[in-house]
Design a binder for these strands. Structure first.
Length: 559
RNA sequence: UGACCCAUGGUGUAAUGGUAGCACUCCGGUUUUUGGUAUCGUCAGUCAAGGUUCGAGUCCUUGUGGGUCAACCA
């Protein structure tokens, strides 16, 4: 097997360099650290694929660590959905861990820091502290509490911990440097009082550690070698390192934070805040609305885990701002489904077609391939009869020669069935066509091997037998926004760019084999697109979501 | 008016001082019982100016443009 040299992304490069400089491979360990305060989206998928991909590449463990230090926002529901999504994407974590597992250790270390005169309790208001913090261009000033004695601080911190003080009245701060050029180093808050029930620790604590104080120490405790996060944490790195310094034992591995650019997708928004807004304002039906860029939304839309992994891999990572074309994501799912999705026939915009020379009471069950790309997919039977539905768009009374479909006097193939010829139309009083009358070539049955069956006709239409057709609700989804980057337009709200046509619900007819379909089953509706069975489906009511339409070079050139 | 990060076709990425490549998109040809797929092809790029070097997308300087940082959020 020829070893094709795959280029490394910059994170892999860093790891290779570390390995070359003496870090041993067995020390490699990664983590994916979501906060359980919302649902995962395609941007998280990039991080998941990166971290777990690294684990696979280096045969190293990857922990799933919930960063649950803010009980005001976090819920078990989110923990469950995140676990489900990560495993659905196809990854296995080494350990399921929680930042809250380390609350006691963190507390003990904080006490030690107070003893070392490296932390102090501040009783100022957040407004006062903000004022003293300075600005990026002006240094801050010291808090009047900065020089409290160790004893005073210890006593106050104990009171904080014992729930004897009011929420918001006191915080523990690291004593670093109020004039530091990095705002994050100006005596950052380590603990705040929060009398909240925590989804795991219950009411054990009424002080909760802040992100910065928690994250690096958690990485250190888990001996994570490379702690990978997004770019907006770059300026936190100084603090991350400072905190690790406070507890670092030289015999242990020292974790390293590195940052990459978050993945943005065109025609959608990715921030949790905005996604939450879409849900709360009922612009979408929920976190798993098939138009949402959430993992659960994509799943319900019909995306496969494989396609999302391929997308992440193909898009790659770097450190520059990006808006990846959603067309790449769509390519990934079409490419996957083309190989795997069974082909079926469904008519979305039906018009009746009568084959006048086909016996009225006759019906045939014809053989149809399930997937031309995959012989092992086998075949099924589809019923054929005198009256069928075809798409309205597939007929025109008078044809221009580029129109490969049905018109009066012209022949087309009915997929898996016969060649038919347009003869006449029936119209209502408004001149609207209500029926198309055709004749069929009795010797032209697909696969029969006759000379007539091998005639080349320019067009092939899909169809369903009216007598056997099954009614189905079909939800046609389109992009949620009309702008590539809806949230980066100056002076405009992202909701100004909502696409009014992002969802169209239609009544369609599908072939009877689909009655057996299960929720989340994916199909190609031939000549139309990929569709999956929605969870709203019941025994008597089929609902399909359109995942993505097929490429359509006809409407492109004609329209 | 600070610090830090970033800048390669329309988009996303690669080239580790030595032929600017890959994928998507767009456009066109061939094949096709899906106007799909497959396949072939076309268009298209190193932000700018200096410098170092035999040689610079890559290193240095300056500029330009974009981004990040001042929650008791993560």
């Amino acid at each position: 097997m020829s070893e094709e040299k795959k280029s490394l992304n910059f994170i892999e490069q860093i790891i290779e360099d570390d390995l070359a400089n003496g870090l041993t491979k067995d020390k490699l360990r990664f983590r994916f650290p979501p906060e359980p305060n919302g649902y995962l989206h395609i941007g998280h998928a990039a991080s998941i694929c990166l971290n777990f991909g690294l684990g696979l590449r280096y045969n190293a463990p990857v922990n799933l660590r919930f960063d649950d230090t803010n009980p005001a926002k976090e819920e078990q529901e989110y923990v469950d959905s995140i676990k489900y999504d990560v495993q659905w994407l196809g990854f296995k974590w080494d350990k399921e861990l929680y930042s809250s597992d380390y609350f006691q250790q963190l507390y003990d270390w904080a006490v030690q820091m107070i003893k070392d005169n490296k932390a102090y309790v501040d009783n100022q208001s957040s407004e006062q502290m903000a004022l003293q913090k300075g600005t990026p261009t002006e240094p801050g000033t010291d808090s009047p509490n900065r020089n409290s004695t160790v004893e005073e601080n210890l006593a106050l911190f104990a009171k904080m911990k014992n729930c004897e003080l009011e929420e918001g009245s006191h915080v523990l701060r690291a004593k670093i440097d109020m004039k530091h050029v990095n705002m994050h180093m100006r005596d950052p808050i380590m603990y705040r009082i929060l009398k909240r029930h925590h989804h795991r620790t219950g009411n054990d604590w009424c002080i909760y550690p802040m992100y910065d104080w928690t994250h690096g120490e958690s990485d250190y405790l888990e001996q994570i070698s490379h702690s990978i996060c997004t770019l907006e944490f770059k300026s936190h790195r100084d603090l991350y390192d400072w905190y690790v310094d406070q507890v670092y034992d030289f015999s242990k591995l020292r974790p390293k934070q590195r940052e990459f650019a978050r993945r943005n997708l065109s025609y959608t928004v990715m921030s949790k805040r905005k996604l939450l807004q879409l849900v709360e304002e009922k612009i979408v039906s929920g976190w798993d609305d098939p138009r949402m860029p959430t993992i659960s939304g994509l799943r319900r839309r019909g995306y496969t885990p494989e396609s999302i992994r391929t997308f992440s891999e193909t898009a790659g990572i770097s450190k520059r701002d990006n808006v990846t074309d959603v067309a790449l994501l769509e390519y990934c799912i079409k490419d996957d489904l083309n190989k795997t999705a069974p082909r079926v026939m469904a008519v979305l915009n039906p018009i009746k077609l009568v084959i006048t020379n086909y016996p009225e009471d006759k019906e045939e069950w014809l053989t149809a391939e399930n997937n031309q790309e995959d012989e092992s997919a086998g075949s099924r039977k589809v019923p054929f009869s005198r009256e069928i539905y075809i798409e309205k768009e597939d007929f025109k009374e008078e044809a221009n020669k580029k129109f490969f479909r049905l018109s009066i006097g012209k022949e087309v193939r009915l997929k898996n069935a016969y060649i038919i010829k347009g003869e006449s139309v029936v119209k209502d009083e408004n001149g609207e066509i209500t029926e198309i009358h055709c004749t069929y070539d009795t010797d032209s049955l697909s696969g029969s091997g006759t000379e007539a069956s091998q005639r080349k006709v320019k067009g092939t239409l899909h169809w369903v037998s009216i007598k056997h057709a099954v009614k189905a609700e079909v939800r046609l989804y389109d992009r949620l926004f009309t702008e590539e980057a809806p949230d980066s337009q100056k002076d405009k709200d992202f909701k100004d760019f909502l696409n009014p046509d992002s969802l169209k619900i239609i009544a369609a007819f599908v072939e009877p084999s689909l009655k057996e379909a299960n929720i989340l089953d994916r199909f190609q509706f031939q000549r139309l697109g990929y569709f999956c069975v929605d969870k709203d489906t019941t025994k008597t009511h089929l609902v399909f979501n359109r995942t993505v339409p097929l490429r359509d070079s006809w409407t492109k050139m004609s329209g």
